[in-house]
Design a protein around this nucleic acid. Structure first.
Lengths: 347, 347
DNA sequence: TTGTACGCGTTATCAC
DNA sequence: GTGATAACGCGTACAA
């Protein structure tokens, strides 16, 4: 005899009740007499039955309790970004409220053996950014009626977006810098596309990443001709590398640097120190995000704070709404200007 | 007529083949003639069928392609720990190799509505640490025959563990400090248990967290009476707070501090600077982990490097082995001493 | 409050 | 290369 696992029917038989009754004992959806409940639980215990099989339950219910979070980058990288962590935090919270968990997925080659949106039993998906490869599986998933939300990205008009007023926010910051009197301004941007190696941005039109493009546009609204150097990621080291480039030629150096993230800004500050420049006396540096940058004391970046956790929470709430058959609208959060001690009028 | 979604049988009927043939067209497990394949795919297209339902497939196969990662802390916190991120990185990689994804779970109150090990359709589970509440659901899961591995924790003798030679490593570091001539040494420890508020450790016996206990034991092997102050988490800020306590009384201050993590050590260095102490001239500080601490330059911690990503990878490999019916042995990785510039003989 | 009957959508197996 | 059959384990109308 094969030693297969006990099922709810086995338990029911052992307890002398019907399978449906046993099921109800475990789900608690219907009142059951105490005596019956006890009999069923005893039977379960004696058979080593540990409750409904989640796989079968999810088929039956049509719900798995799993929400996919799709990143367009290496997960290790994504988790190095404080903004994404905060976002995950908010998302975890709101999704846990509906009894769901998060499945980490990466936008990848459909040929790979790794699990994907199309093969994983998910009830909904949250896309973090939205680059090329994803589009295909996205179509599949949507055809299945699975709710999808995108954070900081564009997945087509019918996919609700959670985002920021990136352009306006960066414009506001640029205006601040201009009002201080700066004219020779440089921009340190986020990557231009996935796989981007750091370098100057030649052509504003070719920016594939929404966040990068919009923040750049905001800066351009005020400083149309500022040179922009795009980093390979949002890291202090990348900001440092970019800063070294910007400060390489003493004659041509900017009096202010608009960085597209706080980590980049921190690196730029570091580069300035390295180059013997004082911040903010010799050069002003602005960030974006409003995170706490470890090790940057005594500097406090002048930055645009963004509600990262709220973005995650909003995504979760949108999903809940859609799962309940409702509609979810796109949301644009507003960033808040926060003055630190890294900006001042030019010398 | 209800507008229900097309199933593989619908597609088969439309294509004039049997359901099993249609199934095979999608799974590719058996050769199918080109003509048949085309007919099936066309039928699928015309019916808007987008491939097998993952839920049904996972019921039938008995596999969901999902591995749970269970943390015993708030996820936002876990992801602030560089060591855990590196570990996740290794885990993601090895698990993706077997076509599985990671489901983020938190060790929590079984009454909560949040998803748990018992209700999620997972093929295996990786526990990161192993505190109290988890034990119960663990029993359930194991009874189901689901492979479980624990990283840096103890889940019972029959659960394979992936860990470090924490005690030996910390002892090695302590010996180094002693060989430099230090005698007045203090320890800054990791939390004593979940929910711990920072404070002195009164009773070495009551340490619930394995890592903390073992590293403390290692230090005690060399400095049996060193006072130990446990932080509330592995953060620079916590190290800073601990350092302030240690350096508060100039008369009683230690000449060396053994921190149980690099982030704590970085905070202690910061506290030393704040107190007007030079590192390493006035006080030596040692870390643990071997991560790159942002913003600590020009200091480089004297530390014990640990193979974090390898731990994750090993966990994934253990799971794969168990899923294939094999056994998985516990593994203890070895840390490597790395000398930086934060240690020197006492003044 | 309990039981009957059926369907959820797929895939393994084996025979043809 | 293709098809028939039988699970996989459960939830839930509906009837009793």
């Amino acid at each position: 005899m094969s030693t297969r696992r006990a099922t709810i029917s086995d338990v029911a038989r052992e307890a002398g009740v019907s399978p449906s009754t046993a099921s109800v004992v475990f789900s608690g959806k219907t009142p059951v007499s105490d005596a019956t409940r006890r009999r069923v639980l005893e039977a379960a215990e004696s058979l080593g039955y540990t409750g409904p099989d989640p796989r079968a339950a999810s088929l039956r219910r049509g719900r798995s309790g799993i929400v996919a979070v799709v990143f367009e980058e290496h997960l290790g990288r994504a988790f190095q970004d404080p903004v994404k962590i905060l976002m995950m935090d908010g998302l975890t919270e709101s999704v846990a409220g509906m009894g769901a968990g998060l499945l980490l997925l990466r936008d990848q080659d459909p040929e790979s053996s790794a699990p994907s949106l199309t093969t994983a039993p998910v009830d909904a998906a949250v896309l973090v950014g939205c680059s090329g490869m994803l589009r295909e599986s996205l179509a599949v998933v949507r055809a299945r009626g699975i709710p999808v939300v995108v954070i900081e990205g564009d997945a087509g008009d019918d996919v609700p977006r959670i985002g920021l007023d990136n352009r306006e926010a960066q414009r506001q910051m640029a205006s601040h810098v201009r009002s201080l009197g700066h004219e020779r301004v440089a921009i340190v941007a986020l990557p231009v596309r996935t796989g981007w190696e750091r370098g100057w941005i030649d052509d504003d039109e070719r920016i594939a990443v929404d966040v990068t493009r919009n923040r750049l546009l905001g800066a351009r609204d005020v400083f149309p001709h500022a040179p922009a150097f795009a980093a390979a990621g949002s890291f202090i080291d990348e900001g440092l590398a970019a800063g070294r480039v910007l400060f390489a030629d003493p004659a041509a150096r900017p009096t202010a640097v608009l960085a597209q993230s706080d980590l980049l800004a921190a690196g730029v500050v570091r580069a300035a120190e390295e180059a013997g420049l004082r911040v903010p006396e010799d050069v002003s540096v602005t960030g974006f995000d409003g995170i706490v940058v470890d090790g940057l004391a005594p500097y406090e970046l002048t930055t645009m704070w963004q509600p990262s956790a709220d973005k995650g929470r909003a995504a979760g709430e949108a999903i809940v709404a859609m799962l309940q058959g409702g509609e979810a609208a796109s949301i644009r959060f507003t960033c808040t200007f926060r003055e630190g001690n890294t900006t001042a009028p030019p010398a």
